Simulated assay, not measured.
Amino acid sequence: MSVPVSTKRHPHDDAPDTDPAFVRLAELPDGPERKALRDDIVRSWLPMAQRIAGRFRGRGESVEDLVQVAALGLVKAVDRYDPGRGHAFESYAIPTITGEIKRHFRDHMWILHVPRRVQELRNQVRAALTELSQTVPGHRPTVAEIAACAHLDEDDVRTALEALDCCAALSLDAEQPGAEDGNALADALGEPDAGFDLVVDREAVKPLLGELPERERTILYLRFFRGMTQSRIAEEFGISQMHVSRLISTCCHTVREQALADVA
């Protein structure tokens, strides 16, 4: 089945007159005939979709992928278009296809996750920088100038400027800028220090330890701060190792329960 094409004038040469086909498509029930007509309409408008995709070349995505995204937008436009509203299909399809391509860039071309609002600010600032580079060549625009050109406040401009480099990321194996010893970026990353937790724990139990009897405090000190064995501590106090073990266990349990109670 072929789509009838008339000599009706359109803004672009690749815009066929498919009005009768859309009217027919709206009348047909789901089935092979409707699918064939729908596919013919899509093929008739593919040149327009390819032309729109071409506007976005040079932005880090291959033309082939852009054409596929544009074709997807065209299919959505064909499926959602209602000829009964009286609007030309071209005026409906162009923003639908363009929106699908922009959505592709927004969702798939950012290596780092950036909120949608920041992405939009970034686009506004980038456009303002392009405009300012033509009006004030040789001069790096200030934040205030960018804000005035983009009609944004300066805080939003600063946020957008920080996001300008968020489309790409360096590998952690990349060499540090200016490094002479070949150190990678990963070598400069810190890691959690368990010692901080130890300091917090010691400060939390310090007053609780002070409430223990002197003998128990001394036993805990010798065991955990001097590293003495239970048998050596038993010799120091003239008691059995089993007794030392029970005292340590009882003291630790008491201090732990009191510390948890204080936190709660």
Rank of each mutant, 00 (worst) to 15 (best):
207 P>M: 10
53 A>P: 02
59 R>C: 04
256 R>P: 00
204 A>W: 00
6 S>F: 06
138 G>R: 12
104 H>V: 10
118 V>Q: 09
227 G>L: 06
242 M>F: 04
151 H>P: 00
94 I>S: 09
57 R>W: 11
167 C>G: 11
91 S>M: 08
49 A>F: 10
36 A>G: 06
7 T>C: 07
119 Q>S: 01
155 D>W: 11
190 G>C: 06
251 C>P: 00
225 F>M: 15
110 W>G: 01
220 L>A: 02
191 E>T: 14
232 R>D: 12
223 R>P: 00
12 H>P: 00
71 A>S: 13
227 G>W: 11
87 H>Y: 14
22 F>W: 12
149 C>F: 10
197 D>R: 09
53 A>R: 08
73 G>K: 13
107 D>G: 00
207 P>I: 14
173 D>M: 07
240 S>N: 07
257 E>G: 07
262 D>Q: 10
120 E>H: 06
53 A>V: 14
106 R>Y: 02
206 K>Q: 12
164 L>Q: 14
127 A>R: 10
126 R>W: 06
229 T>Y: 09
262 D>S: 05
110 W>M: 06
246 R>V: 10
107 D>K: 07
41 I>D: 01
198 L>I: 06
133 S>T: 12
36 A>D: 12
259 A>R: 13
77 A>F: 14
258 Q>R: 15
100 E>D: 03
147 A>L: 12
257 E>Q: 13
36 A>F: 13
52 I>K: 05
17 D>F: 05
222 L>M: 15
8 K>M: 07
194 A>C: 03
129 L>A: 05
4 P>C: 06
234 A>W: 07
34 R>A: 14
169 A>Q: 11
194 A>S: 06
74 L>R: 14
146 I>R: 07
179 A>K: 01
148 A>S: 11
208 L>H: 02
17 D>W: 09
10 H>M: 14
22 F>E: 04
227 G>K: 09
112 L>R: 06
79 D>K: 12
114 V>H: 03
249 S>Y: 12
182 G>L: 08
31 G>T: 11
23 V>A: 04
97 I>D: 07
259 A>T: 10
184 A>K: 08
203 E>C: 00
150 A>Q: 07
148 A>M: 10
77 A>K: 08
124 Q>K: 10
7 T>D: 08
73 G>R: 13
202 R>F: 06
143 V>I: 15
99 G>P: 05
192 P>E: 13
185 L>D: 08
217 R>Y: 02
82 D>I: 15
201 D>C: 01
68 Q>H: 05
133 S>E: 11
227 G>H: 08
87 H>V: 15
259 A>I: 06
